[in-house]
Structures are given as C-alpha cells and as structure tokens.
C-alpha cells in the first residue's frame, strides 16, 4: 500500500486513520477542558447559521421558533470546528498545489454540461433536501457516520445505511453514462 499518491494526496487509509486518532484526542481534550465530552459533527452548525441569518430580518420569529430554541442559535465548539475545516482545507490545498478554481464539478459537467446555473439549481435543491433529512435524522455523515459508528450506536449504523443506500439508488439514475474523473 502506498502512503502517498502521485498528486501529493495521502492514502485514504492513512488520512482516515489519522482522523480516527483526532476523534479520540478530541474526545479526551473536550472531556478534560470543557463542560462535557464532545463528538465530531457538523450539521447542527447549519441550523445555527440559518438562525443567525434569519435573525437579521426577523429576530422575533427566530426567538419564537421551537427548533431554534432547542438547538440554540449561538457560536459554540462545533461552529468553530466547521470554520476550522475551511481553514485546514485551505492550508492543505494551497501548500500542496491541489487548490483549483472550478466552476462545475467534472462528473456533473460530463452529465449535465458546463452551465453554472444548472449546477447551482441542483446543488441548492439537493442541499435543501439533504439538510432537511439530516436534521430529521438528527445527524449527518460526521455525527451519525463517524461519531455514531465509532460508538457502535444503532442509530449511526442505520443512518449510514440509509444515507448510502438512497445515494447509490439515486446516483445510478442521475449520473447514468457520465464518465468518472
């Protein structure tokens, strides 16, 4: 097995195993240094960010909303974690030459052409459906997939099977015939 691939990428097995080490270190550190143990997750931050955005136009509506009240519209550990993902990915891609401005993803282009408008429509509609589902399921591939399955949670195992099962089914029809890059 190669540790490093041709284009400067790390083997997904190696990079993934290091994420496992990071998940353990993060659990140890948050248990020692904060009020409670925190597990990696990302999708709740989108609820809080949506809450912040809505607050600028309708603060009373956000205050009255049961879901925003439950999840609390605040900047917390996970919010900074998600901002950190941006910084870490920028650091990595800018230092190994893999940073690349891209208008439309290659597989999408092979199937639907280079129109940014069409891609925007797909991404916005897909994103809205996916996030609605993630909130209903109470987690995304980070919270349910990584953190849930690491703990052998029944909900994490079932959720990942649903995520992937539905993804494989729909992708089969949506990207039929497109080349893979």
């Amino acid at each position: 097995m190669k540790w490093k691939l041709e284009d400067g990428a790390w083997s997904p097995y190696v990079a993934g195993a290091l994420v496992g080490v990071l998940a353990i270190a993060s659990v140890v550190a948050t248990t020692a240094l904060t009020d409670r143990t925190k597990f990696l997750g990302a999708s709740t931050t989108f609820v809080r960010a949506a809450g912040f955005a809505e607050q600028t136009v309708a603060p009373d509506h956000v205050a009255d909303n049961a879901y925003f009240t439950k999840e609390k519209v605040k900047v917390d550990w996970q919010f900074l974690f998600v901002i950190g993902i941006f910084l870490g990915a920028a650091l990595s891609s800018l230092t190994d030459g893999s940073f690349k401005l891209e208008k439309v993803p290659p597989t999408w282009k092979a199937r639907f052409g280079g129109s940014v408008g069409k891609r925007a429509l797909g991404a916005i509609a897909g994103g809205a459906v996916a996030m609605f589902g993630a909130r209903l399921a109470d987690g995304c591939p980070s919270g349910h997939g990584l953190s849930g399955i690491m703990q052998l949670s029944v909900s994490g195992l079932v959720a990942l099977a649903m995520f992937f099962g539905a993804g494989v089914f729909v992708a089969h029809f949506v990207y039929k015939g497109a080349s893979h890059e």
Binding site: A42, S43, T45, F46, V82, I83, I85, F86, L87, G88, A89, A90, S92, S93, S98, F99, K100, P105, T107, W108, G122, A123, A125, G126, G127, A128, V129, A130, M131, F132, G133, A134, R135, L136, A137, D138, C140, P141, S142, H144, S155, V158, A159, L160, A161, M162, F163, F164, G165, A166, G167, V168, F169, V170, A171, V174
Partner: peptide, 28 residues
C-alpha cells in the same frame, strides 16, 4: 433516522457534498 436518512441520501447524491465536506470544498 429512516425517513431523514433516506432524504439525506437523495439530496447528497445530487449535491455531491455532505455538510462537513462542503465547507472544505470551497476552501480548495
């Protein structure tokens, strides 16, 4: 978990990102 998970999968296949990776994708 079942309905939400299936909806997530449908949206994920068209969006091509999950919540955590979307933020990193812009950064690269």
């Amino acid at each position: 978990v079942i309905i939400g998970g299936l909806l997530f999968g449908v949206g994920w296949s068209i969006m091509g990102y999950c919540p955590g990776t979307s933020v990193g994708a812009i950064a690269e």
